[in-house]
């Protein structure tokens, strides 16, 4: 605590952004429900998204202005670091829920449906034809949930995508070293490469999805295998999209010269986030694609 300068507490002025954030989310939610139910207010959904975009531009813009204006002291910087760290932890727990569902289905639910444990009667009376094999290529009730024709392999495109994402974690670190050494050129070049890798990953992931839907019959509604596959990789892909967008903003800010070698928390926060997305992918690659 002694390193913090307590003489200059920073407390932001009253701000309109939180209320705009609430209006944006309520609008989005009402629009989303009406879109799902084909209701009259479905036009609220795009408006909600626009409001969220406005919120991000406005709120982060205000923070960038304050930061550039030199209003932040070491204490604010530390609060931001703590905030980002625990935000990432909350994201880890969000993925943990879906990984937990995957493990539960693979270890318990399918085994019991197949007659494991003391569930011989369950198997006999519900779906006696069902065999508990992962990946599930024949669901307990194939009329309700059409099973996939084949499972997603781990080699080929997914393996290449793993390399892409791992490489991007390295390149963002090289860019960070450039920033810390005040070398603008390597910072911008390596950050641009990172963004390009992120975009490539997303492009390849979209390829994989199309292949799954069109050639393999593997869809979101093809039973627990498709459910876990698409929800886990889908949420990961969404996070990569967010991360790539954030990296792009950092690239633009780097080109504008917003960062100095000792004051670039925004860059670091995005780098942390990017490493987090990378680690989640490793878990996905091992447990969804490989094992």
């Amino acid at each position: 605590m002694s390193t913090t300068n307590h003489g200059e507490y920073f407390i932001p002025e009253p701000s309109k952004w939180p209320v705009i954030g609430t209006i944006a989310l309520v609008t989005t939610v009402i629009g989303a429900v009406h879109t799902i139910h084909a209701g009259e207010l479905n036009w609220l959904l795009p408006i909600g998204f626009l409001l969220i975009a406005y919120l991000f531009f406005g709120w982060f813009g205000a923070v960038i202005d304050e930061s550039m204006g030199g209003h932040y002291n070491a204490q604010v910087d530390k609060s931001f670091r703590i905030g980002m760290l625990w935000f990432i932890f909350s994201e880890v727990m969000f993925f943990a829920a879906f990984f937990g569902a995957l493990f539960y289905a693979r270890v318990f639910a399918l085994d019991w449906l197949g007659g494991g444990g003391n569930n011989a009667a369950t198997h006999e009376y519900l779906w006696p034809a069902f065999n508990a094999i992962w990946p599930v290529l024949s669901n307990p009730d194939n009329t309700k949930f059409a099973p996939p024709a084949e499972a997603m392999g781990a080699s080929g495109l997914p393996a290449f995508n793993t390399a892409v994402l791992l490489a991007s974690s390295v390149t963002v670190t090289i860019a960070h070293h450039g920033l810390r050494a005040n070398h603008r050129k390597p910072l911008i070049i390596w950050l641009a490469i990172t963004v390009a890798l992120g975009v490539s990953f997303l492009f390849l992931q979209a390829e994989e999805y199309m292949h799954a839907y069109e050639q393999m019959g593997l869809t979101l509604d093809s039973g627990i295998y498709g459910s876990t596959f698409f929800m886990l990789t889908g949420f990961h892909g969404f996070h990569v999209t967010m991360g790539t967008t954030m990296l792009l903003v950092m690239l633009i800010r780097s080109i504008k010269g917003h960062f100095t070698s000792d004051n670039h928390f925004a860059f670091e926060a995005v780098a942390w986030y990017w490493h987090f997305v990378d680690v989640v992918w490793l878990g996905l690659y091992i447990f969804v694609y490989w094992l």
């Binding site: 539960y104 639910a109 669901n139 949930f145 698409f230």
Partner: peptide, 17 residues
């Protein structure tokens, strides 16, 4: 709404999950 079967045993899920 989107056809997943996390909590539906017919698709290999489990309401107990």
């Amino acid at each position: 709404h989107f056809g997943t079967s996390f909590f539906n045993a017919a698709g290999g899920g489990d309401p107990v999950l």
